[in-house]
C-alpha cells in the first residue's frame, strides 16, 4: 500500500511541478499600477531620483539585464572594481559628462559598448517618455555620483505626464507673443482680460481669475483652457460656450504650461 501511496503522491506532485515549471519558464510580465509622473518646473533632485528608481525597477525593465551582471554591466553596486554607475559614468567617454554619457546610453545604446558585452540594449527613449528617461538618469547619477539633472533638461514639449504630452501648437498655427513663456504676455496677447478679471484688471463678464488657484487644480485649469466646454463655473451657466475653444491650438506646450502654473498659483 505504501508503494501505491507514494506513487499517487509522486504523480500529483509531478503534475503540479510540471505546470508550475511551464508557467515559470515563459517570460514573466506583471501588470503594474500605472504611475502618473508629474515633474513640474520646480522638481527636486530627490523627487527625480525617487521617480527614476521606480522606472528602473518597474516599467523600464532595466533589471532584466542590468541587475544580474551577466547580460549587461551592473549599475547599482560594483562593476569589476570600477564602482557603481554614478562613479564611473563621467569617465566612460572622453569629453562627455556623466549626464551626457547616460543620456547617450539611453538614446543610442550602441554608440558606446562597454567591453565584454553585446549591443543588445533597446533604445530607451523610444520606450519611455522624456520625463521617465531623465528621472532614470537622475537615479543612476545618484548611485555614487551627484545628481545634476534639473527640470530644464526635460523638454518642455511634453509638460505633464507621460500620457499627456501637451499641445505643441496646431499644424502651422502661430504661437502667441512670438512663443514667449511669460504668462503675462500670453494673457495680454490672448485677450483673456476681455472677459476675465485678474489682479484687479479686466472685465467681469466671466469668472474672476484672481483666486482661481484656490478653486481649481492645475489640471482643471489646463482642461478648461483646452476644452472650455468641459466645465462651467457656478453662476456662469448662462454664459457657457462663450469662451473660445481655440486657445489650446494657439499656444505651444511651454506657453500653456507656464500659463496654467501662473494661474494655479493665484490662490
Amino acid at each position: 500500500m505504501w508503494a501505491t501511496n507514494l506513487k499517487v503522491v509522486a504523480i500529483v506532485l509531478g503534475t503540479l511541478a510540471l505546470y508550475t515549471l511551464i508557467a515559470n519558464k515563459i517570460p514573466q510580465v506583471e501588470s503594474e499600477v500605472p504611475q502618473t509622473l508629474t515633474l513640474g518646473a520646480n522638481v527636486t533632485p530627490e523627487q527625480l531620483v525617487a521617480a527614476g528608481e521606480k522606472v528602473f525597477n518597474g516599467i523600464g525593465g532595466c533589471t532584466t539585464c542590468h541587475g544580474l551582471g551577466t547580460r549587461a554591466p551592473n549599475l547599482l553596486t560594483d562593476e569589476k572594481g570600477t564602482g557603481a554607475i554614478g562613479v564611473r559614468c563621467g569617465k566612460r567617454e572622453a569629453g562627455k559628462t556623466c549626464k551626457q554619457y547616460l543620456y547617450e546610453s539611453l538614446d543610442q545604446p550602441t554608440a558606446y559598448i562597454v567591453a565584454g558585452y553585446q549591443p543588445i540594449m533597446p533604445v530607451m527613449t523610444k520606450q519611455l517618455s522624456p520625463q521617465q528617461v531623465w528621472a532614470v538618469i537622475a537615479f543612476l547619477e545618484s548611485q555614487g555620483g551627484t545628481v545634476d539633472v534639473s527640470a530644464s533638461d526635460i523638454p518642455a514639449t511634453s509638460p505633464t505626464s507621460p500620457t499627456s504630452a501637451g499641445g505643441a501648437g496646431g499644424a502651422g498655427g502661430a504661437a502667441f507673443a512670438g512663443g514667449s513663456t511669460d504668462p503675462k504676455a500670453i494673457i495680454q496677447a490672448a485677450g483673456c482680460l476681455a472677459c476675465h478679471k485678474l489682479d484687479g484688471q479686466g472685465q467681469v463678464i466671466a469668472p474672476d481669475l484672481t483666486h482661481v488657484g484656490s478653486r481649481r487644480s492645475a489640471e482643471s485649469i489646463r482642461r478648461k483652457i483646452l476644452d472650455p466646454a468641459s466645465s462651467t463655473a457656478k453662476g456662469y451657466e448662462r454664459l457657457a460656450g462663450i469662451m473660445p475653444k481655440a486657445f489650446g491650438t494657439m499656444m505651444n506646450a511651454a506657453q500653456l504650461e507656464a500659463l496654467v502654473q501662473y494661474l494655479a498659483a493665484h490662490k
Partner: peptide, 29 residues
C-alpha cells in the same frame, strides 16, 4: 497619437520607431 513610447509593460519591449504623432498632428488630421 501615442506611438511607441510609454506603452504598458506587456507591450514592451516596444522598440518601435513610431513617433508620438500627437506632437505633430491635430486630432482631426
Amino acid at each position: 497619437a501615442k506611438g511607441g513610447p510609454g506603452l504598458p509593460r506587456e507591450g514592451t519591449p516596444w522598440n518601435s520607431a513610431m513617433p508620438q504623432w500627437e506632437d505633430f498632428l491635430t486630432e482631426r488630421e
